[in-house]
Amino acid sequence: MSSPNKNSLLILGCLMLAACGAAPEKKNALSEQAIMRSERGAAAFVQGDYARALNEYQLALRADQALEHAAGIAVSRINLARVWREMSSPAQAHAQLDALFSPPVLPYPAASLAAAAALQARLYLESDAVEAAAYWLGQGETFCQKTCPAAGSLLLLRAQLAMQGKHFQEASKLIGEAVGLLNADQQAVELANALRLSGEVAYAQGDDVHASSSFEQALALDQKSGLPAKIRLDLLRLAEAAGHAGRKADAQNFAARAQSVSMAIDGARQAELPPAPAR
């Protein structure tokens, strides 16, 4: 057979293979808009541009609401709550999350409800409302049943509750369970959180060596994830652990590093600020 005919057969074979698969499901224009807005919101959130993230997620929510797309509504509201929290507006964050647990009731995915409950618990924990935090943790665990992506986060929040009550053994056990559930690739931030919490438990129990080791592991993960605020936190914890162990030079070095990171963060924030208005 001549070469062009061989090529023709090859092309025909490829076309037949291509025809074998079923045509992908086409999304409507409004769904595509919601997805696009959500992706833009995530990009803005990662860059720390919370005002733009808020706007994009609100547009995504509006598109999802127009289609009554329950899963999309849940995702948009949870993400909006995250942005409001970063903008120091916990009341707005709670309002977004409360909407998921109030009428009109839509068939929201259980995993999304578990994530929303975890975020509620975290917000309450940050405002020292321990009972409310415990209530929402229970709600999250009911929705999740240890099978959802938020399962590790729920355990870490439960561990933080236990630490507040000085139940260090229980906290250590919960952290161990959480590490087993977390995905190292997709949940590196939570894994670093777990290591930092583990270090804090060890520090509280006087085990400075274990504490330093855990903080160093958390620091390595946070450096890999590129999160300056967390890096600063890890360095401060390392400084505390080194100081407690009597390694004053190390403690001073870690503290200086933390201060350097802190100044870099503040410098970056200053650079982002608009120029001062004319007097």
Partner: peptide, 13 residues
């Protein structure tokens, strides 16, 4: 592709 929840962060500043 689709709408995804932002990565969870149960601890932080």
């Amino acid at each position: 592709g689709g709408e995804n929840i932002l990565p969870m962060d149960s601890y932080g500043t």
